[in-house]
Computed example of a mutant assay.
Amino acid sequence: MPLAISAEGVTKTRGATRALDGFDLEVPTGTVHGLLGPNGAGKTTAVRILTTLLGPDGGRAEVAGFDVLRDAARVRTRIGLLGQYAALDEVLGGRQNLEMFGRLYRLGARAARARADELLARFALTDVAERAVTTYSGGMRRRLDLAASLIQAPEVLFLDEPTTGLDPRGRTEVWEAVRELVAGGTTVLLTTQYLEEADRLADTISVVDHGRVIARGTPTELKSRLGGDRIDVVVREPLDLSAAATILAGVGNGNPEVRADERRVGIAITDRVSALTATVRALHDAGIEAEDIALRRPTLDEVFLTITGVRRDERPVEHAHGSRRAGRPDTGDAKEAAA
């Protein structure tokens, strides 16, 4: 498949920090690619370079077939960017916001109005189009923000932590909107701290740490690095945890993972049926009462911790500065264009 995004050996130093250190990326056209990594790993810096808001110190990067340095203006006309924070005028209504962005992107009044109506219908916002954005729910605001990033019908859409701060219903609404976009042929690069989000949306994932990609693959391929299926046992009595761990060590692969605060012990297994049968029998014979026994696939949280060696909340937050949208040839930000 042709590549919508490619980067090779990209470097970027910000002050004393090496934000990107040989960053590589390939995203086929018409797919969703997730960027995962600890806070401060370089995800937002990579997005800012790929959207021409920040110049790299070294390496090369192309988006929609154009170099982000030599052909920055052409790149901007082919991309949309939804940043971590909404960039809407909350006093205006939804329709007014979209028409305003349409005019900033140099659409005529009639064309801006028509595009606003189309996007309001697409994101199920027509009924609230005249209401001030300040009255919108979190999910509605984010859908309107996403609609604004599509004014120019971009080939490539960058979503930088698009559901931060949303409740489960709001996240689901945004996920559904993203799926519809991809079904229509849009390529999406997604950075997120919600590993469930990457698991549900991304076709492929790159794990970023210390400014470079340290693992890549489909969600299933990354999970398989932890040994396939797992078995979890929750014991009723905390004092039985050690004995339960010994039992699981005999039916699984590697060392059991013990979570004392949850009274839970788990381990990777090879044969689901035989491991479950052996575990139930051994617990019964040892007189250990289990509140729950479950077979499951590894989670991306476990993959994340295993690959990076840190928990997601152990790094300082990497802040996104500046733009949340691109599209106009001579700027990476619609609001800057209006100034």
Score class of each variant (00 low, 15 high):
Lys223Pro: 12
Arg272Met: 02
Asp232Arg: 13
Val258Phe: 01
Ile267Asn: 07
Ala183Lys: 05
Leu276Thr: 13
Ser206Phe: 00
Leu276Ser: 15
Leu226Pro: 08
Ala260Asn: 01
Asp209Cys: 09
Val280Leu: 14
Thr299Lys: 12
Leu305Met: 13
Leu201Cys: 03
Gly252Phe: 03
Glu196Asp: 15
Glu257Thr: 15
Arg230Tyr: 09
Ala278Arg: 03
Thr191Phe: 01
Leu222Trp: 02
Ala249Phe: 11
His284Gln: 11
Arg169Cys: 06
Arg272Ile: 09
Ile214Asn: 09
Asp209Trp: 01
Asp285Tyr: 00
Arg297Asp: 15
Pro238Leu: 13
Arg216His: 14
Leu189Cys: 10
Ala183Ile: 03
Ala198Tyr: 11
Ala286Cys: 09
Ala244Trp: 00
Gly227Phe: 13
Ser206Tyr: 00
Ala278Asp: 03
Ala243Lys: 08
His284Trp: 02
Lys223His: 11
Thr246Ser: 11
Thr218Ile: 04
Arg297His: 15
Ala286Gln: 13
Asp209Glu: 11
Pro298Ile: 02
Leu283Phe: 06
Val213Lys: 04
Arg171Met: 10
Gly287Met: 06
Ile293Met: 07
Leu239Cys: 04
Val208Ser: 03
Glu262Thr: 02
Asp285Ala: 04
Val280Met: 11
Thr306Tyr: 00
Leu241Phe: 08
Ala282Asn: 01
Arg281Cys: 05
Gly170Tyr: 09
Pro219Leu: 07
Thr220Ile: 08
Ala202Lys: 02
Thr172Val: 07
Asp240His: 15
Asp229Leu: 12
Thr220Ala: 15
Asp240Lys: 13
His284Val: 13
Leu181His: 14
Ile288Arg: 08
Arg171Gln: 04
Arg230Pro: 03
Asp292Cys: 05
Leu201Ala: 07
Asp285Ser: 08
Pro219Cys: 07
Leu226Thr: 07
Gly227Thr: 07
Asp292Gln: 15
Ile269Glu: 00
Asp271Gly: 06
Ile267Trp: 04
Gly252Ser: 13
Gly266Val: 01
Arg236Tyr: 11
Asp199Leu: 01
Leu295His: 02
